[in-house]
Structures are given as C-alpha cells and as structure tokens.
Nucleic acid binder design. Structure first.
Length: 569
RNA sequence: CAGGGUGUAGCUCAGUGGAAGAGUACUCGGUUUGGAGCCGAGAAGUCGUAGGUUCGAAUCCUACCACCCUGACCA
C-alpha cells in the first residue's frame, strides 16, 4: 500500500476527551474516530489491526474444532422473555421497537439465540458435542463508557458456545478452550494471566478470566508469586491473617474520639494500628437491619456478601435508618449494646480487645471482646476483599495484587439455559436430556486497546508484529527530487509486496521527520529508509520500532533480511 | 443515576458586555530536504441549542443538549 492511496490521519495533539494512553494513541494515530459516547468508527488503519486480531482468534477457534456462524445483532424480545433475562438484564440492554411496535434488543450477548438455533437443529446425542462461534458486534448500554474502545458500548466480540451430552464432555471442551485462549494471547504477544473468576451475571458454575496485565486495568488480579494461584479480586478467598482469638486482656472502655469517624482517623488519633479497629456496616435485608463487621483496614466484597443466604438484595442502610435503630449517626456505629443480627468477617471473629464505634457521637469503645461485651456473631463469612500480604488459599505463600484488563472469559453454563429453553437431545436410550453448555468470550476490539496499553513509548504505538497494520514501512528521503531514490523505493516496494510482506510505502511529499514520526506513531514494526547517502554505497537502512539505532544493509539483501526478521519474530 | 467540569476553526486553546482570535492542521507560492523545517499569502467558526436581559451578548440569566471526569452502597 502507498500512503498516497491509503488514508492516514494522524494528530499532533490528542483530543481532550482521551485520558488513557491507548485511547490517546489510537485517536492520534487515526485508528479510531469517536461518533458518540462509546461509539467508534474503525478507520482504515485501525480496521487492519482489528482484522489481524480477528484472524488469529478465528484460526485458533477453527483449530480447536469450533465452527463459525454469524447471528443477528437485533434479537426479538420473546427469546429473552423465555429465559427471564428481558427483565433481568435491565438498562444495560438497548431495546428498540420495530414498525409494528414489537420489542427487540441489540444483542448484548447471544446465549438465547444460539440456544434457540441448537434446540431446533440438534436432536441426537450423535450430533454432540458441538461448538459454534461468531465474531460479531455487540451492544451494551454501559453506565459509563470510557477509555475509547476499552469500554465502549458497541464493540466486537468473539463468542463461542459449546453443547454436550454430559459434564465430562463439557469439561474437555472447556479445557480445550482454555488452552486455545492461552495460545491466542501468546500469539498476540500479550503479557497476560488466566485467573479464577466469579461466574457473574451470565450464570453457571466454573469460570476463568484472561487478563492483559496493565496498571490502567479496571480489575484487581490477585496472585501468588510462589504458585499458580490467580483469581479476580471479586472472587479471591480471603483467609484470616489473625491467629486464633486471644483471651480478653483489657476492660471495655469508652473513649472520646471527637470528629474521628473513619477507622483510619480513629486509629491515628488513638495511636494504635488500624488492625485493632473494627468497622460496622449497617445494611438492610428485607427491611431488617443487620450489622456487618469488618476489620478497619478491610473493604467489603459485595459479591461475596450477596452470596450469604437471603442477602442477594441487601443494601446499605440510610442515615435515617441508622439513626432510628442505633440512636446515632454514621461514623460511630458499633455492635455493642445493639440487639441486631451480626454477620462477621472471618478475620474479625478472631480479634480481641478491639476498637469500634460506641453508638454515641464522638465516642468509640476500646477493649471490646466477643462473648463479653458483644454477643458472639450470628454468622461468620468471608466477606472482604483480599489485601496484599494475605495468605494464599493454596498455602503456598503470600498474595500480591496487580491490575488487569479483562480480554477473555470462559464459563461452564451447565444446563442453565438448556433447561429453561428446552434445548434437549435424545440419548442412547431414547430419553430426552438437557444439553450441558459452555460459553467462551473474547473482547476483540478491547484487545487492540489492551495491546497498545502494554506496548507503546513516547513516540507512539509499538504493535506486536502480528497485529501491526503493516509489517514494514519504506521511507524514501527526497523521493520527489531524486530519480534514483524513486526508482529504488518503487523496486523495493514491489519486491517486498511480491514476497508477501505487508509493506507501506511513504510516497508523500513530506519531510523525513514527518514520515518518521508518523510511522512511529502508528506503530509499524520495521522501517527501511532509502536515502542518497546510503544508496551511493548500494545500502539502505533498517531499523526496528524498538531498536536504538539503524543497521546498514546492502540493498540487494534487504528483502531477504526483512523476510528473515519477520519470520523470526 | 448522583456530584463536578467543559462546549469558540479539523485538533489544542485564548478571549468576562462594544468589529471572532492564536498555535497547529489545511490550500497556494517560494525556499529547504535525515527527525514534526523556514518565509509569504489564503481559505476556514450557527462561539453547543433555544429563550431571556441589554442600545449592544461568545461573555450575564434560564432551560435543554452533547461530551469528559469522579462516584454509584466501604460510615
């Protein structure tokens, strides 16, 4: 491709809307253009990158036996009403009506459609297992779209669905998908980690997420450096760092803590470690107030808390509710003297002589002990987020936390959808059985942003070779003045093209600096410069996107040289 | 959804009541040719939209819209 024929639109300054480095670079490099909040056009250059990612995903899916199809973006409401998700999905789903006022949605995911297809088509155990996938645009009306295509409303996703006669078959495909995902992210040249995850809204049992590691990631990843344990922070089990509860050694004592409402403030004011404080969260469950106790430096994990029996729709109590039940405002709430059910985090139940609110403005209790000053908790659960230094659940060391961008998620759905949608098959004995199902997603468009997040420098994007919009850029210096340079640049362009290399010839009438800067910004991995000074000796210059310096290469060898570098990388 | 912010040229932004601006990008001419050059000329805006105040509004007021940020139960 010649730059003069192609469409490149780079910007010196990024539009003010972009904050994240990948978003800024994608806009500056002209990969994407914003049309509306969370809506992006993939410009020609960006589309080439997106297609590269799709290509690798497609190859690996085909390799592991999945079969491609393409389902509609627009889906009838009836299917979603069948599974109850028409109501359950809420405002995340964009709904539309057709000319007859019938309800439809823009597909946020395709479980309903695929299950409908399979229940119509698959009748016999002989036709199973079957894995179908598509690479399709999805629409989710996100609360807050941000970071460009990282969290867009409209985005490209690969979603695969597998159907089985039993769990053993499901697990085999699940494992094959897991391995395939590892292969995909390796081929894409990404630094990533597979983690145990919460099955979440899609439902089902076992689940893994794949995260590209980046400080800007929206998810917390918990991992154990000494073992293979890795989990999403939403899911990671928090073990109690405390030893078994020690005997009470202090009398309970009321202490003035004027204007010290948070545990941090109280601990600092009393000059005690924050680990000696307990925070009390008043929550409402079915109009009843319940107290949740957490160590002062810990945070409630809402997902864990919702798994407590009958807790799935708890909410934090309002200021008025707290006042009426405890007689005090927030900041000084504590379990002492209140006749309310207590649910205690695993860590807190081992604490003794702790500090908590006194249910009186400006006062806390110190030396508080279960069984003496407060009743023993009614229930004890793991309801907090893991913090760095916690013991790994596999007992092989201490946990660390990093940030990740979720680019893949695999689930074992089991029979959740097949049962309600009656996707069943006849087994060998002629009995009707619901199919076991798996579901496997990859955020294709998000991968482009994640890759840039991980691979860039002050000059711009550094695309992994497999994702780059072009593999090689030819930058001729003074092409429009020098006949020799023009001729040699054209010859080299034709030669590389014939060798099957994706080459971009910068044939614009631009100054060298402009061409260098643009090729670096858009992240072309390899660059060949043809200038008078080298050509006199029959040489050109080669420089990799990450190389400090260029190498002088004889013109007659350059095609072989580039081929070997591209094949080797 | 709540709170905050911003809307002026393609992009980045100045302009607080009296003629619509700069840098950059773009077009043309010249010069230059190894890192976003230099000189000159030019084209370019419904100052987000609607209403109001005023002799006069980009500027003040009201409403709406769009976009961005933070949060969305962590006392």
């Amino acid at each position: 491709m010649r730059v003069s024929q192609f469409f490149i639109s780079t910007l010196k300054e990024a539009p003010a809307e972009a904050e994240l480095v990948s978003h800024r670079l994608m806009l500056r490099a002209g990969l994407i253009k914003r049309l509306g909040s969370g809506l992006y056009t993939w410009m020609p250059l960006g589309l080439r990158v997106l297609r590269k990612v799709e290509h690798i995903v497609r190859e690996e899916m085909d390799k592991c036996g999945a079969v491609e199809l393409l389902m509609p973006v627009v889906q009838p409401a009836e299917l979603w009403q069948e599974t109850g998700r028409w109501d359950k999905f809420g405002p995340l789903m964009l709904r539309i009506k057709d000319r007859y006022r019938r309800d439809f949605c823009f597909g946020p995911t395709h479980e309903e459609v695929i299950t409908d297809i399979v229940r119509r088509e698959i009748k016999s155990y002989r036709q199973l297992p079957l894995t179908l996938y598509q690479i399709q645009t999805k629409f989710r009306d996100e609360i807050r779209p941000r970071f460009g295509v990282m969290r867009a409303r409209e985005f490209v996703m690969k979603d695969a669905y597998s159907f089985h006669i039993d769990v053993a078959s499901l697990e085999r495909t699940y494992q094959a998908m897991y391995d395939s995902y590892i292969q995909i992210f390796n081929r894409l040249g990404l630094r990533f980690r597979a983690v145990v995850a919460d099955p979440g809204a899609i439902g089902g049992s076992s689940s893994h997420e794949f995260h590209v590691l980046a400080d800007s990631g929206e998810d917390g990843i918990v991992f154990c450096p000494g073992s293979t344990y890795a989990a999403n922070i939403e899911f990671a089990e928090a073990l109690s760092p405390e030893k078994l509860r020690e005997r009470a050694s202090n009398p309970i004592q009321k202490i003035a803590t004027p204007n010290k409402k948070t545990c941090e403030e109280v601990a600092e004011f009393l000059k005690v470690p924050i680990q000696k404080t307990v925070k009390t969260l008043a929550v409402m469950v079915n109009n009843e107030m319940v107290l949740l106790l957490l160590r002062g430096d810990h945070r409630l994990n809402e997902i864990k808390a919702r798994k407590i029996p009958f807790f799935n729709n708890f909410r934090l109590a309002s200021e008025e509710e707290i006042l009426s039940k405890t007689g005090c405002c927030t900041g000084y709430t504590g379990p002492v003297g209140l006749e309310l059910p207590i649910i205690c985090d695993k860590t807190v139940v081992e604490m003794s002589d702790f500090i908590c609110g006194a249910n009186e403005v400006g006062y806390h209790f110190a030396g508080v002990n279960f069984g003496r000053d407060v009743k023993e908790p009614d229930h004890v659960y793991d309801i907090r987020n893991v913090v760095p230094g916690d013991l790994s659940p596999d007992g092989k060391g201490k946990l660390e936390i990093c940030r990740g961008i979720e680019v893949g998620h695999i689930f074992q759905l089991r029979t959740e959808y097949s049962e309600v949608m009656k996707a069943s098959y006849l087994n060998e004995s002629g009995q009707s059985q619901p199919m076991e199902m798996g579901c496997y997603g990859i955020g294709v468009s998000r991968i482009v942003a994640a890759a840039i997040e991980q691979n860039h420098d002050e000059h711009g994007i550094i695309f992994p070779i497999v994702m780059a919009p072009f593999q090689v850029a030819i930058v001729p210096i003074g092409m429009n003045k020098s006949e020799v340079i023009r001729t040699e640049a054209e010859k080299l362009y034709t030669g590389l093209f014939a060798a099957g290399i994706e080459v971009l010839l910068d044939d614009r009438e631009e100054r060298p600096g402009v061409m260098f800067a643009d090729m670096e910004l858009i992240g072309i991995p390899h660059r060949i410069v043809i200038g008078e000074r080298g050509l006199k000796e029959g040489n050109v210059e080669y420089q990799g996107r990450c190389d400090e310096k260029y190498q002088v290469i004889p013109l007659r060898n350059i095609i072989n040289f580039v081929e070997s570098i591209i094949c080797g990388s």
